[in-house]
């Protein structure tokens, strides 16, 4: 088998300095805003777009502790994580637009994006569906002595799925290099975490399985990066871990959801918990950056992300003939199209 080896692009976040973390968070925020625009302009192929605005610190902070060769899976709200692991935003946006130039040639979209070259074993549209893959990747890392870790990113909603507990149990039992990252944005679709569990202290569940576990405030990306680095170091040494990043989902579950089920006061308070603004203020108050320099950086990021829309709009759709490709390996015959089959059967001499 020619399974591609995970390699990592040089420009991925590997620096936990606040300016670098801020830049990555700004890129994620702006990318997500452009995803929303793509949808509004009718250029998004996917009808299901889940934005991670308000959760940027989890992606930027944890991914800063990961390195080349590490693998990961994400949930359906995973754009930011992929960007933080070095994704090309043009190819991401093109995939979200269902275009041939996208990471998965338009077949995957927002919720099934993946790139083996960057170690992205796949986003997932099944809540919890991508979690056990990191147990297998952890087994492979141990077997091949690669020194890689494998991280599963998921939301608080996945804590309702049994597969999470099966996976954590196996990772702990076998001391695999697995990291479980629960991005607690307080909502599983429209159900708030306290309406879904009697014990919202989610890290306690992981402790029960014998994992190193903690909760960090997602407002502060430096705290997330620090917790991420600490846990990832342990994971790499064969001590699996679980990290909850507490944050707030700024907008609805998906693009069309105006979240009428949320209290406007709660929403306003939640949106005040803005990791991007918090980092920006910290950079200025700690004199790590001038406001004008940050404005320039924001403008540069805006231009980068504007270009993703132009790129995507200019790309073509995959050809209809690609429809039967990749159900099976390229060495195997493609499935017979229904129309050809009908014509063949009903052909009369």
């Amino acid at each position: 088998m020619n399974q591609p080896q995970a390699v990592h692009r040089a420009d991925a976040a590997s620096n936990t300095d606040l300016p670098q973390l801020y830049r990555m968070m700004r890129r994620i925020r702006t990318f997500e805003e452009r995803v929303g625009e793509l949808f509004v302009r009718g250029q998004s192929a996917g009808s299901m777009l889940h934005l991670s605005i308000g959760e940027e610190s989890a992606a930027a902070g944890v991914c800063a502790a990961m390195r080349e060769g590490d693998t990961f899976t994400t949930h359906h709200r995973g754009h930011g994580i992929f960007l933080a692991r070095g994704a090309d935003p043009n190819r991401m946006m093109a995939e979200i637009g269902g275009k041939e130039a996208g990471y998965c040639h338009g077949k995957g979209g927002s919720m099934h994006i993946a790139d083996m070259g960057l170690g992205h074993l796949g986003a997932n549209a099944i809540v919890g569906g991508g979690i056990p893959a990191v147990v297998g990747a952890g087994l492979a890392a141990r077997h091949k002595k690669s020194g890689a870790i494998s991280a599963a990113f998921f939301g608080d909603g996945a804590t309702g799925q049994g597969i999470l507990y099966e996976s954590m149990n196996m990772a702990a039992l076998w001391q695999l290099p697995c990291l479980f990252v629960c991005i607690n944005n307080q909502y599983g679709m429209g159900t708030r975490i306290d309406q879904a569990t009697a014990n919202p202290r989610l890290h306690e569940r992981a402790q029960a399985f014998g994992l190193a576990a903690e909760t960090v405030d997602g407002l502060d990306v430096e705290a997330v990066a620090e917790a991420g680095r600490r846990l990832v170091d342990g994971v790499r040494a064969g001590k699996p871990a679980f990290l909850v990043v507490d944050c707030y989902r700024f907008y609805g579950h998906a693009r069309k959801d105006k979240s009428p089920y949320r209290d406007p006061v709660e929403e306003e308070q939640g949106r005040n918990k803005d990791p991007v603004a918090f980092a920006r203020n910290a950079l200025i108050s700690r004199k790590l950056a001038e406001e004008s320099a940050l404005d320039a950086l924001d403008a540069e990021v805006a231009a980068e992300m504007d270009a993703t829309i132009d790129f995507t709009v200019a790309q073509h759709e995959p050809p209809l003939s690609s429809m039967f490709r990749d159900v099976y390996a390229p060495t195997e015959p493609e499935p017979e199209p229904v129309r050809s089959r009908i014509d063949r059967i009903l052909a009369r001499a």
Binding site: Q3, V134, G136, A137, L139, E166, S167
Partner: peptide, 17 residues
Amino acid sequence: SEPAIVGAAVGAALAGL
């Protein structure tokens, strides 16, 4: 844990086993 057995096999296959 049948779901995680199959899921771990999927991940292991993706990672080269």
